[in-house]
């Protein structure tokens, strides 16, 4: 998104401006409210929430819900808390993001600088693959993961996320390398540089921004995924989102809202931190993913 350089020709009076600010602030409150609710209630004892004071700050500040959510909350059949699933998610996200980014970079390089007859068809097919509803692949994927012995395992989930992430990562790198001067590549070829030398010495050193965009996009998508995790993960590989949903929707026992909120913040924190640290790149990825070209 463009850095603010607004020189709008529209002129507004004082009253209108006050109204505009008021509206903007009302919406800021609307967007912040659910998160505020999660944070304040995650530090309250349960009876304070039940008393109807959801918007109030905690009277009795406690970190107990956080400890429970992390260490001892009942997830499915075992009272392990969310910590093992947080680790599952990390073990799944890191290789999935790394591999899909590497493939995307190489594919983007080939599809822009080493074009062959039919390159646009190959790209078109990879692009369309980004948008399919994943319901259409769930049944055969479950079969294949079973056949190759990866059902219910973290490597299986990594494979799924790499396969269905390649479309987007290729799209990002292709559009970025499209704008990279082909003359430089041609010149290096005349000087006898090989395929890999050109990639590692010429393109890769200037790919910093697009690598950041791609890694953030993939990290957010894989971390936040629920459908694949719920379909192909079991107790040893279940990611954080699925565990959180199990915690919140379990119908047995007392509903520990404060623990649920603490768990939800835990699941949100990694992507939120990435967003706060590098929001600019996050938005660029969103826009590139949404608006082709």
């Amino acid at each position: 998104m463009a850095v603010s350089s607004p020189d709008t020709a529209v002129r507004t009076g004082r009253v209108t401006r006050a109204l505009i600010y008021a509206l903007l602030i009302v919406f800021a409150v609307y967007y912040l409210l659910p998160f505020y609710v999660m944070v304040v209630n995650s530090f309250k004892p349960l009876d304070e929430i039940r008393g109807g004071a959801m918007l109030a700050l905690p009277k009795l500040f406690t970190v107990e819900p956080w400890l429970t959510a992390w260490n001892s909350a009942q997830i499915g059949v075992s009272p392990t808390g969310l910590s093992p699933y947080f680790i599952n998610s990390i073990l799944m996200v890191v290789p999935a993001v790394a591999l899909s980014t590497v493939f995307g970079a190489i594919n983007g390089y080939v599809l822009t600088k080493w074009r062959f007859p039919g390159h646009d068809i190959v790209f078109g097919m990879m692009l369309l693959a980004c948008f399919i509803p994943f319901q259409i692949v769930l049944i055969p994927m479950a079969r294949i993961l079973g056949l190759v012995g990866l059902a219910g395992s973290t490597p299986g989930l990594v494979m799924v996320h790499v396969v269905y992430g390649i479309g987007f990562t290729t799209l990002f790198f292709r559009n970025y390398y499209e704008a990279f001067p082909t003359e430089l590549v041609k010149a290096a070829q005349i000087d006898g540089a090989s395929f890999w030398q050109i990639f590692f010495r010429i393109l890769l050193p200037s790919s910093g921004p697009i690598i950041v965009v791609t890694v953030i996009w993939q990290f957010t998508n894989v971390w936040n995924d629920f459908l694949f995790g719920a379909s192909f993960g079991d107790f040893d590989s279940m990611p954080m989102t699925v565990a959180l949903n199990n915690l919140v929707s379990s119908s047995t026992g007392v509903k520990e809202y404060n623990v649920h909120f603490a768990g939800a913040i835990m699941a949100a924190l990694p992507t939120l931190v990435v967003y706060i640290v590098s929001g600019r790149y996050f938005v660029r990825g969103l826009m590139a993913g949404a608006v082709k070209g």
Binding site: F27, Y31, V37, N224, L244, V248
Partner: peptide, 22 residues
Amino acid sequence: RPIYLYPMALSFIVTGTAWKWF
């Protein structure tokens, strides 16, 4: 701007949990 946009970084499961109880 970042306040309006941050929900997009969250998982739908987190959003669902927050609104379910709210």
